[in-house]
Nucleic acid binder design. Structure first.
Lengths: 206, 206, 206, 206
DNA sequence: TCATAAACGAGACGGTACGTCTGGTCTTTCC
DNA sequence: GGAAAGACCAGACGTACCGTCTCGTTTATGA
């Protein structure tokens, strides 16, 4: 993420005085990553980040508007910038791989962070917009690509609305991620892709 | 909700001391409803509830463990106790009606509350368990009933896993509710039910 | 009192960050004085002081450890810094004037405050030490001076222990102040000084 | 102390209903003594006493008005009922023995309790009256007796005011007890009695 | 013998204040 | 003139006691 966040916009002019320290910026993001790892999202307060990073609170507020925005950038930096788009020649295979890849990342480390970000987004409309743009939309785009490739191959009913399919697939993912009532595993990936492609309706000929 | 909440559990025996006042209990829930309506989930603090209800803070903590638990009970009391299960003779119709009914409730008033509850559940594992039990599971049960009726009628592929279908349908609902990137309307209900039943795969004969 | 109170100790070095606001410090002491006057020692809570001074509670705790310490400083500021030491050429006259002066101050305004401070000191050993240092010892010193002058003039029995005389005189003062069983008036001053100098023993020659 | 305390006054009439339990009364006083010993005056709350005594709070309030009143009675019960009045044939000896006896009791166990009672008395005028009556006045009376005996023997200057002497002697005692700046020991007893009887003034002939 | 009435243990109740924590903002000095 | 440091106002947090108020139960007296 390039991240000249809020306020800094349109600093095309000379930028007098001491330039903003990239070192600070990095130290803050590093502190966030460290705290997420060691204490969890709940313990992540602006004050704790400032302490951990050896930075004044004001410096954090100069670059970001809220805890959630810092975390979002720290998270985006480290892992999410590239969402790989599989291309195996089959829509079903592509979707399954895509979902399993996403599941794996969530199960490994990023699950708690994503859950925390979503919680903050729900309570903070301004951040919700940002998160949709830099996190959600990026992933929807990747999935959209997969679907488009399938459509080109003629694997998709032309009447199907891609956005709805994306809502179904990501919806199922987020549902289990947030509620934790069942695992995000390969079986689940296969099942939701199966239903979304084939439907659950009984068919005479089967 | 029957709700002899925490600590009071299983006091079938004598129940000594002054009994807890149902009046207080109700006043608190009423205050929560009022504050949710007038100020929103964010402004809902224990202190504000106590003030509004004319009650000591300790009295709230005596009945509930956290803000989220009070809200959950207030919400469950007023609207959620009865989840209607449509029975129109067709699985597709039943599902569509079920989803549209849910959407309407969310669009009318309970959307913000549900979003707030989910945010708290994500940050508080203890509450997550409670919320799954009294809110989520109740709704899943209703949907499960609808699916079971369809299966009995032979409308469902016997190989389909009901829980997965439920995750897909509720996942899509929660996804749009939380991210607010698109409306929860009848069209969306029709679309997701359509995909879940028929699949999005292109079919030669169609 | 110069008063860079607790925690700030020995900051001879640079003192980074925003310096503590003398304005706040003064506003708090002013609020304490005002509340003591209008509501009395009992009504003086940290929260009331913060409210009256337009200050956060934390700011009070940053400067002082307890209610009693704030009051002590407020009191010391306004009245006690200078304990006048009379010098009339006679030990008896000096002692009587000293005691009457002290009585007058207590009868006018500072009586209730001194009683409150003593009550807190009795229940809080840490504060007791502080109070002895900045309030009691200062006054004992003044009385010690008076006695020393008398001794120089040869008016005191060289065998007499000054500290014991001070305990007797201040003891009598505090006794009536705390128990309120009799007035602190000029007659009492004359009487205790008389006994302490002359004794109450019957003497043949008298 | 006979102690049919407050409210019960003048029940000449039949006294219907269940009579007050002497067992409770005793259990409460015992709990107070125990708590004073083990936790100190500061930790002594009505709730703690009720818990320790296995008694409802209301029962305590039925007999006494405040914490201080319970403590006062517990203290008076166990030690203070009899203030011994020495009679050795000499005023000086009687006074010294009286003071040393008092000092010893304070140094042994009752010091903290007396200090706590005084702190409460200072903050609670109603209790101050009670404490003067049942604690202070009793002791002043004993000392008054000693002085009267001395006067009868012609050992006291007839012009001396006994109350002032008492204020001086008890004042010195309380002063050191409350401020803890020096020990209450036999030397101090001898010194204050010496000054009060002989005076500290230099005398030509001595 | 049984009704009345007060005391009892228990603990919920409305309050008040506590001391702590965090959020955002501001005000210094240092670089 | 940016940045660290940290003081500032504000206000919620959860806890501790306060003194009062129900409860159901117990223990007396008096009808």
């Amino acid at each position: 993420m390039p991240s000249p966040p809020h306020g800094a916009a349109a600093h095309i002019k000379t930028a007098r005085g001491r330039p903003r320290s990239e070192g600070c910026h990095g130290a803050i993001l590093g502190a966030v990553a460290e705290l997420l790892r060691s204490e969890g999202y709940g313990a992540l307060t602006i004050e704790a980040v400032a302490r951990q990073a050896g930075v004044g609170k004001q410096t954090i507020y100069r670059w970001w508007r809220s805890r959630a925005e810092v975390v979002l950038e720290a998270y985006a930096n480290h892992a999410a910038s590239r969402v790989p788009v599989p291309d195996l020649g089959s829509l079903r295979a592509d979707l399954e791989v895509f979902m399993v890849t996403a599941f794996n990342r969530l199960n490994d480390v990023s699950g708690p962070t994503m859950r925390g970000l979503m919680a903050d987004a729900v309570l903070d409309p301004e951040f919700l917009v940002l998160m949709r743009e830099v996190l959600i939309e990026r992933r929807r785009g990747a999935l959209r690509e997969v679907l488009a490739r399938g459509a080109q191959r003629g694997e998709l009913d032309p009447a199907a609305d891609g956005e709805v399919l994306i809502d179904l697939l990501f919806g199922a993912l987020w549902h289990r991620l947030l509620l934790q009532h069942a695992a995000l595993d390969a079986a689940f990936a296969r099942q939701i892709v199966g239903v979304v492609l084939d439907g659950a309706r009984a068919r005479p000929g089967n």
